[in-house]
Structure formats: structure tokens, C-alpha cells
């Protein structure tokens, strides 16, 4: 009996997660850490009380948006490794608007969010345009633009957003996503209204891809450029559009950090990592909106819960980074898991 493709597509991420956790457990046992205490600490760190729960939600917000960004480009056959860079410029743009203007909240906050989306879109337009016009591989361009974004935003923070300092001023209250209500409900975690924006973004992504002609074209280009071209679709335009929309999601992820979690922009010595984790989210979520939400919940909980592991169980929190990387490996090597499923199935029949 051959298992249906649909069933396999659901099984593969689950098996990948289990394999990742198993290898992580073995690593803890081999290195002499108490694996059970480690996992209890992980769970408590993510859901142990309302404060940790609020922090977990706070982490899930940018993960959802970064995952959407990677997935949207994937759907058109593009690999946007540049979500990290688009996120950083979005963060900067949001904070810039947040500190530069004095406006009523109803205008200021949307303006700051839009600025982040626009900055992300512009940063993603470059690889999209170069891919469409000069057939330059978007992976390389986006990697290079990540570092360019890092250095340029650091320079702007030092020279334009502050006078030689390593951090901008805090944004005006009118541009903030912070919520005294959500904070007080979660024992003063940094949970903020960005969760609403993330959920709206998930619905928008689903709507564009499933309910509009444009979404159909974007997916068609991803499946077969030549056929799409033959059917009269403008492949170049669709490639650029896909990258730009992807960049909008990435820029919004930056706004979540700039307007919600931190409320300022600071000089960075390295990347936030959210953009790269977005690749893991999109991959595990199989690029579907609901899959992305589930994967973001998983990775967000792991990431925040991990911070409790050294305190409560003495296990280095990097264990979770290892597990996440392994999950990415196992999902990417789904061919291996498919072989495994086929073998088990055959044995079952005998």
C-alpha cells in the first residue's frame, strides 16, 4: 500500500522534528547533561507562567512574518536568503519615522509600519530586478545585501539617528506597538500588538496566493517559467513582484522589533538571526500559511524556552539552535525520510 502524497507531506515535518529532538537528547546524554531536566526547563521557559508565555508570543510574531517572507518568494521559485537584511532596513526605517515625527497615534503608527514595509520592499526589489533583468542568482545578491544592510544601518544609526552613539533615541509613544494591556496580562512581558499585524499578514498571504489571479501567476512562474511565459504571463514582472512582496513581509518583521519589542534601533555587531530562522520556519511549514504559523509557534517556543535551560538545568541554550538546524537538515533531506517511510510500509505489508 503506497501512502498518499498528502499524508507524506504531513508526516515529513513531524518526523523531522522528532529526529531533531532525538539527536538533541542523545547529545545531552553524551555530554552528561540531564536531558529530562533540560526538556522540563525548556517547557517551563516557554509556557511555565504567563510572563514566559508572553515572551514566547513576542518571539513568534517576527518568526511568522519572516517565515511568510521566505515562503512567498519560494512559491515563485525564488530563494530569499535576504530576509535578514530586509528586516534590518525595515527596523531602521520604522524607528526613523518613530523618532523623527510628532503625529497623532492613528497616523504615526501606521506610517512607521508602512515605512518598514516600504524599506523591506525596496531592499528586496534589488535582487528581484537583477534576477529578472540580468538573470543574476538571487541567493548571492541577497547574501551580499544582508551585509550591506548591516553596515549601512549601523552607519546611519551612528551618524543620523544619534550623535556618534550606538543607539537611537526611543521612538515616540505614538509610534509604539507596545500595549500596557497585553503587558499587564502577561506579568510585564514584552508582548505587543504586532501579533495582530502578523495574523493579518498570514491571511493576506493566503488570500493573494489562493484567491487572486496574480497569486496564480506567481505560483505558475515558480512551477514552470517557460510554460508561464508561453501562456502569456510576464515572468520578469512576476519575479520582481514576488521579491517585493516578500520584502514587505520581511520589513514588517523588522517593524515588530523596532516598534514593538525594543522601541529603538541599536548598532549590531552581527545579524539578528530572525531572517535565517525564517528559512527554517518556511521550510518546516511547507510554505503554507497555516504551516508557517505552526512552525513559528514551535521555533518561537524553543527559542524562548531555551533561555531558561542554563538557569534551571545547566544545559547551554545553544542546544536548541542545534535542534533547529537539524530539523532544517532533515526536512531538506526529505528524500531520505521518504525512503524510510517506503521501507517501513513494505515491511508492514509483508
Amino acid at each position: 500500500m503506497e501512502m498518499s502524497n498528502r499524508m507524506q507531506n504531513i508526516l515529513i515535518p513531524i518526523i523531522a522534528v522528532l529526529l531533531g529532538i532525538i539527536v538533541g537528547t542523545i547529545l545531552m546524554i553524551v555530554t552528561g547533561y540531564d536531558a529530562i531536566a533540560g526538556f522540563i526547563a525548556l517547557w517551563n521557559g516557554a509556557f511555565g507562567d504567563v510572563y514566559f508565555f508572553g515572551e514566547t508570543v513576542r518571539q513568534i510574531i517576527p518568526y511568522i512574518l519572516a517565515g511568510l517572507a521566505v515562503a512567498f518568494a519560494f512559491k515563485t521559485g525564488l530563494f530569499n536568503i535576504g530576509v535578514e537584511g530586509q528586516l534590518i532596513v525595515g527596523w531602521l526605517a520604522a524607528v526613523w519615522v518613530g523618532v523623527a515625527f510628532e503625529l497623532p497615534k492613528i497616523i504615526h503608527l501606521p506610517l512607521a509600519v508602512l515605512a518598514a514595509a516600504l524599506a523591506g520592499a525596496i531592499w528586496a526589489f534589488i535582487p528581484g530586478f537583477l534576477k529578472a533583468q540580468y538573470r543574476v542568482h538571487e541567493v548571492i545578491v541577497t547574501i551580499m545585501l544582508n551585509y550591506t544592510a548591516l553596515h549601512i544601518t549601523n552607519y546611519i544609526i551612528r551618524t543620523k539617528l544619534s550623535e556618534g552613539s550606538d543607539s537611537s533615541d526611543p521612538i515616540a509613544e505614538t509610534a509604539s506597538l507596545r500595549s500596557p494591556l497585553l503587558e499587564s496580562l502577561t506579568d510585564y512581558s514584552r508582548m505587543h500588538w504586532g501579533i495582530v499585524i502578523a495574523i493579518i499578514a498570514v491571511i493576506i498571504m493566503w488570500f493573494i496566493l489562493e484567491k487572486t489571479t496574480r497569486g496564480f501567476e506567481l505560483k505558475a512562474v515558480g512551477l514552470n517559467q517557460h510554460a508561464s511565459n508561453y501562456a502569456g504571463m510576464n515572468v520578469k514582472k512576476n519575479i520582481i513582484l514576488s521579491m517585493v512582496i516578500s520584502g514587505v513581509f520581511a520589513g514588517l518583521a523588522g517593524a515588530m522589533e523596532g516598534l514593538g519589542t525594543f522601541g529603538y534601533a541599536a548598532v549590531k555587531s552581527g545579524f539578528t538571526g530572525v531572517g535565517f530562522d525564517g528559512i527554517a520556519v518556511a521550510l518546516l511549514g511547507a510554505n503554507s500559511p497555516i504551516g508557517i504559523v505552526l512552525a513559528a509557534i514551535l521555533f518561537g517556543s524553543l527559542k524562548v524556552g531555551a533561555l531558561n535551560m542554563p538557569l534551571e538545568a545547566g544545559v547551554p541554550n545553544e542546544l536548541v539552535d542545534i535542534i533547529i538546524a537539524l530539523i532544517v537538515f532533515f526536512v531538506a533531506s526529505s528524500y531520505m525520510i521518504r525512503l524510510l517511510i517506503r521501507k517501513i510500509n513494505k515491511k508492514g505489508v509483508k
Binding site: 530563494f79 535565517f276 528559512i279 545553544e318 537539524l326 532544517v328 537538515f329 533531506s333 528524500y335
Partner: peptide, 18 residues
């Protein structure tokens, strides 16, 4: 295992740091 080479490379980077 015919994994996407770019994805596998990304995983290598994440794994190495972890």
C-alpha cells in the same frame, strides 16, 4: 539525499554556530 543545496548550506551555518 538530494537536499536543496542552499538549504543544506544554511543548515550547516546554523549547526556550526550551535
Amino acid at each position: 539525499f538530494r537536499a536543496d543545496q542552499t538549504v543544506s548550506g544554511v543548515a550547516i551555518n546554523l549547526l556550526a554556530v550551535g
